[in-house]
Design a protein around this nucleic acid. Sequence first.
DNA 1: CCTAGACCCTGTACGC
DNA 2: TGCGTACAGGGTCTAG
Length: 270
Amino acid sequence: MPELPELETILNKIKVHLIDNIIKRIIVRKNNLRYVVPLEIINIYNKKILNIKRKGKYLLIRLNHGWIIIHLGMTGNLFILHKYISPTTHDHIDIILKNNIILRYNDPRRFGSWTWIKKIKDSNLLLKLGIEPLSNKLSHNYLFKKFKNKKTYIKSWIMNNKNITGIGNIYANEILFAAKISPQRAVNSLTKKEIIYLIKKIKNILQSAINYGGTTIKNFLQPDQQTKGFFVKQLSVYGKKDQICTYCKHKIQFIKINQRSTYYCKYCQI
DNA sequence: CCTAGACCCTGTACGC
DNA sequence: TGCGTACAGGGTCTAG
């Protein structure tokens, strides 16, 4: 489910409730997520939250003795509750805050993870991550160097978090449509002009999706547990197999690339 | 190093 | 309506 724009939306909505607040305790109802939830998290009592930020698709909650690292996997969601509500089947973790606000983690498929690290530089998960797509590090020079002699499909490449963090399947499809580049192009075949245009579209699409509060296909809801992500109305190709391309009126194609659903227009995307 | 494929888990949508 | 199957926004691990 959640890619960079959804994570950014969640972060912006929850941080006002978390920063400088005190975690009274953490209730873990189910600890077998992608990784077993560690005791360092279960045993947190009366600790102040110093900061919270996003890196790629991870949320990093800073306490004075370490960091809680949250990944939402495919179906994870975080909600702010202003009063206690009985948990439902997949409400696996509650962070109980001092003023009885609760940050609740729901994740039906349990592909998400809650891990603990003492220092960022100790974290294998975080150190392997590539550059932030909305930062200045995403430049023509960077991509040109990385693309050299590589035949990887461009879609696989931009979705690989070791290259660029935060771009998942929905936005990879949308970005390549906007950039007019076929998802099956080998990265070393892209021209300078195409790379520059691609970078522009990566930034445009992600920023626009953040502005719309993310994309709700199935179950993504913003932390108020009611608001959906309205970027879904802006989608051009994702989920639109056999529908008509708005530019050329041909049908949107559907193929699989590395087992992931891929939608594109074979006339607009070269 | 790289890539493809299996796998983790539950919910749903669809065809018969 | 009920059942079986395929598929879903993520990432890791293994084999080749």
